[in-house]
Amino acid sequence: MTTHLDATRESYDTVAEDYAVLVEQLFRQDPVGRAMLAAFAEQVRGPVADVGCGPGHVTAHLAALGLDAAGVDLSPKMIDVARRQYPDLRFVVGSMTALDLPDGELGGLVAWWSIFHLPPEELPAVFAEFRRVLVPGGRLLVGFHVGDERLSPERAYGHPVSYDAYLLRPERVVGLLGEAGFEVTARLAMEGRKQPQSCLLAKTV
């Protein structure tokens, strides 16, 4: 039986090369998103994981901001792209649902639009996992698409895909983070896109 993690992994293995070109272009055109990453970087003390790192552009940006950053992604092909493009950085295959890290290992964690494919009922466990690997006072930055729909595209980035994607209400994400042991310290709403987007900066309490 194919799980949603299998479907997501297989889909991103398929689109990895074309996805990398597109998202890196979009990232260069996103000064507001980069400002949130800069605010996160100023507050972090200790190593950082970019969870759902894709082709590694955000990991590389965090490293350029002076952080000890490493990337984790479900898709082996995405990790191959990231390692090829940023050979001096650390990238590993893994799932945010069960991070291969000790408790309290990280000073910060970024999930940059990477909770998009998680069924909402799995978010409490994933946020608890984020909390587990962070030190007291550790920082979390989460970006996500805003709404209350489940999307099931058949094609993306010029290729067939089989994943589902989920739009989330910011107030719901704030509540779930609170239940997992986080306090949200900053919120950013971004309009004028295909779907509105939101970023939440939080710390462990």
Rank of each mutant, 00 (worst) to 15 (best):
A111H: 02
P170W: 06
A7R: 15
V58A: 02
V81F: 00
R150T: 15
S75C: 04
V174F: 11
L22C: 03
F127G: 04
M1C: 14
V184A: 04
D30C: 06
G46H: 05
A165Y: 05
L101H: 00
E105H: 11
L37E: 04
E191C: 01
E171Y: 13
A202S: 08
L167I: 12
G56E: 01
G143Y: 08
G181N: 06
M190H: 08
D18N: 13
D80F: 00
L200C: 06
S75E: 08
D6C: 10
D6F: 09
V58L: 01
T97H: 11
S152N: 09
A202Y: 04
V135R: 15
A125I: 09
S11C: 12
L123V: 08
G192K: 11
V174C: 13
R90F: 02
E191M: 09
Y86V: 01
S114M: 11
G54Q: 00
R169S: 09
G181P: 03
A35L: 06
P124A: 07
T3N: 13
Q197N: 11
P31K: 07
T3G: 15
E10S: 15
H159N: 10
R187Y: 03
C199T: 11
R172L: 15
L123M: 08
E17Q: 14
L123I: 05
L123C: 10
